[in-house]
């Protein structure tokens, strides 16, 4: 009822193995993410996984900001990690308009296990010096917990750049929404 055994067993195992910690501290200085940079606004714990940089405070099941830096034609949003799904991950096609880019992100989330994904308010937005897009989303995770998200992205020189914030709808999305919006305002492209 509370949580599934597999999750518990897996995390307990992870916890008892000693080894290098994969998370690093993100301090308040402007942070270069490759094709763009942001001011973090608060301290985050960061992790690199499958070509994506991930920032969290409490753990990615609760809140996380995902940064995609220059997804090229033919590439998926991230390298498939768990390999449980027999469906192929969607691949970015250059060039994509904003509708297609949103579909690419949403379908990737759906194949990765998010359910009942609802997008709203797809609109033009600045991505540094470039014309980009934003949209909002709602979803449910594998356990049925409601989540909310927002995305800011742009296709620049045929590559996709993305900032995606996903968090539990209850408490966490609102708790970190402020710093994320300020982070978005601070975004610069070279």
């Amino acid at each position: 009822m509370i949580m599934n055994m597999r999750g518990l067993a897996m995390v307990v195992t992870l916890a008892t193995l000693s080894g290098c910690a994969p998370y690093n501290l993100v301090t308040l200085e402007r942070r270069d993410l490759g094709g763009f940079s942001v001011e973090p606004q608060i301290e985050w714990s960061s992790l690199e996984n499958g070509g994506i940089e991930i920032w969290t405070v409490h753990g990615t099941g609760l809140e996380a900001v995902y940064f995609a830096d220059g997804i090229a034609d033919g590439e998926p949003l991230f390298e498939q990690r768990f390999g449980e799904s027999d469906k192929p991950l969607p691949r970015f096609r250059s060039p994509m308009n904003a509708n297609e880019a949103m579909e690419f992100v949403v379908d990737t989330l759906a194949i990765s296990g998010a359910g009942e994904i609802r997008t709203s308010a797809l609109r033009p937005a600045e991505f540094g010096a470039h014309a980009g897009f934003r949209f909002d989303l709602g979803y449910r995770d594998a356990s049925g917990l409601e989540g909310r998200g927002l995305a800011l992205g742009a296709v620049i020189d045929g590559r996709l750049y993305l900032l995606l914030y996903l968090a539990a709808a209850e408490h966490y999305f609102a708790a970190y929404g402020g710093p994320v919006e300020r982070m978005i305002d601070s975004l610069e492209t070279p």
Binding site: C20, S45, H58
Partner: peptide, 17 residues
């Protein structure tokens, strides 16, 4: 899950916590 993942053992510790 987050507490179990990040607060027990150094392997998965979060600098923010």
């Amino acid at each position: 899950n987050a507490v179990l993942a990040h607060k027990f053992g150094p392997a998965n510790a979060l600098p923010t916590m």
